[in-house]
Design a protein around this nucleic acid. Structure first.
Lengths: 158, 158
DNA sequence: TTGTATGTTTAGTCAATACTGAACAAAATG
DNA sequence: CATTTTGTTCAGTATTGACTAAACATACAA
C-alpha cells in the first residue's frame, strides 16, 4: 500500500536479482516479507505488485521449487495462498555456504591431472583447495552453532 | 594441450558460469590455474582456448576489474601477460561472505518501515536480520582465523 | 447445464549479453 | 619511413530469459 513499502519491495527485488533471482520473483519475496496478512493469494500478489497473472504463476512456482516460499492450503477457499517458508533464510544461507565445496572438488580434479607434473605447477590449485577445504569444515561447525543458539534462544520459529 | 586439461578447463568455466562469470572468462581462469608457465600472453590464451582475440581482450579486462587476474608487465616484451592474482580465491570468498551483510541491511530497512505496525508483523524480517547478523559477525572472526593460520602455516603465498 | 472465478500454458515480444570478424590504433622493428 | 605485431573498439549476430496477453483448463456456483 504505502509508497515506502513499495520502495522497499523494489530494493529487495534488486538485491536478490544480483543473486540470480528474477525481478518479479524478488518482488514477490519482498512483498511476502512485509505484507499483512503474511499469506497472500496469487491475485493479491498480482494486485500488490502490478505483475501479470502469468508472471506470478511462473515465479511462485519457481520460488516454491527453490524452497523460498510455500503454498498454504486454506479450507473454505480453493485459492492458492503463498507465504515465506519459515526457516527459509537460514536454509538459503546454509545451502549457499555448502555450495562452496564445489570449488574444493574442482581444485581436487585439477590436482589429480597434474599428479605427474612438477609440484610447483599445482601450487595455484593447492592454495585454492586449502582455502575451500578450510571453509567447508568451519562453516559446518558455524552453522551447528547457529542452530544450537537458536534452539536455546528466545523464540524458535518452527 | 592434453584433452584432459581442456576438459578440466571446461568444467572450471561451467562452475564459475553458475556464479555469473561468462563462459570465456571462466575458461581463461581455469586455464590460468593449470597452464605452464603460469603467465600467459593474450595470444597464448587465444590459442589455448580457441576463442577470438576480441573475446580474450574483453574478458581479460573484466577479470582484471574483478581482481581475479592481473596483468604482468614483462621487460623485453611489449606483450601483455596475465596470471591468476595471488590470493584471489581468498579475497573472492571474503568478499562473497562480506556480501551477506547486504541482506542484514535490507532487513533493517524493512523493520524501520514497520516500526509503527504491530510487532508480530516484523517477525519475518527479524528472523532474517538475526541470521545475517550472526553470520556477519562470525564470518569476520572465521576469516581472521584463516589468515592467521595461513601466515603461521607452511608456505605463505604473498 | 451454464456461468464465474482462478490458475496454467503457449506464443510472441523485448532487452540484455556473450561472442565474433573486421576495422582501427599504437608501438616496436626492419 | 613502411611493416609487423599486438591489442582494443565497433558493428552485427545469435542466444537466452523475463515478461505479457490471450487461449486454455479446472472446478465451484447457480
Amino acid at each position: 500500500m504505502s509508497d515506502n513499502l513499495h520502495h522497499f519491495v523494489e530494493e529487495f527485488a534488486l538485491a536478490y536479482e544480483a543473486a540470480g533471482i528474477p525481478r518479479t520473483a524478488g518482488r514477490i519475496l519482498g512483498w511476502l516479507m512485509v505484507c499483512d496478512p503474511p499469506e497472500q493469494t496469487a491475485s493479491q500478489l498480482v494486485e500488490a505488485l502490478g505483475a501479470s497473472k502469468a508472471s506470478v504463476s511462473t515465479m511462485t512456482r519457481l520460488l516454491v521449487q527453490m524452497h523460498l516460499i510455500e503454498r498454504v492450503p486454506k479450507r473454505g477457499s480453493r485459492q492458492d495462498y503463498f507465504r515465506i517458508r519459515p526457516g527459509t533464510w537460514s536454509e538459503r544461507v546454509k545451502n549457499g555456504l555448502a555450495g562452496l565445496s564445489v570449488y574444493k572438488t574442482l581444485a581436487d580434479k585439477g590436482l589429480r591431472l597434474l599428479e605427474n607434473a612438477p609440484p610447483e605447477r599445482g601450487e595455484r590449485l593447492r592454495e585454492m583447495r586449502e582455502l575451500y577445504a578450510f571453509f567447508e569444515e568451519e562453516l559446518k561447525g558455524l552453522f551447528e552453532r547457529y542452530e544450537r543458539k537458536k534452539r536455546g534462544g528466545s523464540d524458535a520459529i518452527q
